[in-house]
Amino acid sequence: MLPIGPAMKVTIYLNQDTSSKRGFLRDEILSFLREKGVGVGGATVLHPYAGFGSHGRLHKSDEGDVEGLHLPVMICFIETMEKTQSILPILQEMVTDGLIEAHPTEVLKSAKQEEKVIS
């Protein structure tokens, strides 16, 4: 769980079809963020309905052709300043086509509900 106080919010913007050495870059980044030793507190992959990048071409989820496969994806996480600073250089190497932004934020509450065991 994140401690209350200063933190860093990171958002990575990619296309869902951006490839990496092992498959899709979004999956590789998510796996990296879950790795032991890196282990950020949590990350979310968002699939927007539509978007465009620096090229200006609009891509929408309801397009049936190849343009519809080139949709935007955002990966977001919040972590301590120290951990974020240690993993940002690796993320910058991983992202060969996209954008990474990071900005300071403040964690006001970090609560974790115990998992319910259903028997």
Rank of each mutant, 00 (worst) to 15 (best):
A7Y: 02
D27M: 02
A7G: 06
L25C: 09
E28M: 13
Y49Q: 03
S19M: 11
A50V: 12
G41P: 12
L14H: 00
I29R: 02
I12F: 01
P89L: 03
L30I: 10
V40H: 03
S31A: 08
M74E: 13
P3G: 13
A111G: 01
I29L: 02
N15R: 09
E106Y: 10
K116P: 11
E101M: 15
G5Y: 01
L99C: 04
M1I: 11
G68Y: 00
S54M: 05
K112P: 00
S86V: 04
D65C: 06
T84S: 06
E63D: 05
A50G: 06
S86H: 12
T80I: 11
E35D: 12
D97W: 07
D17P: 11
F32H: 04
V73A: 11
V117L: 04
F77L: 04
V10Y: 07
P48F: 04
K116M: 12
P6K: 09
V117S: 15
N15I: 06
D62K: 06
P48D: 08
L46F: 04
S110Q: 01
E79C: 09
R34H: 06
A111W: 02
D97E: 14
S31D: 07
T18K: 05
S54Q: 10
I78G: 05
S61I: 04
Q113S: 13
Y13S: 01
P72L: 09
I118M: 03
R34E: 11
R26M: 15
K36M: 13
L2Y: 05
D97L: 10
S54I: 14
V73R: 09
V117T: 13
Y49L: 10
Q85D: 15
T11Q: 15
S119C: 06
P3S: 08
G42S: 09
G98Y: 00
G5F: 02
L108Q: 08
T80Y: 03
G42W: 15
G98H: 00
I90H: 08
V73K: 01
H103V: 14
G56F: 12
K116S: 13
A7R: 12
L14T: 07
H70M: 07
Y13M: 01
L69I: 05
A43E: 05
K36F: 13
E28G: 06
L46M: 13
A50Q: 12
H47M: 07
V66C: 02
I90Q: 11
L30M: 10
K109W: 11
L25K: 07
I100L: 01
L108R: 05
G68I: 01
K60Y: 07
A102H: 12
L14E: 00
V10D: 09
T44Q: 00
E114V: 04
Q92Y: 03
R57V: 15
A102Q: 13
S119W: 06
T96R: 02
G51R: 07
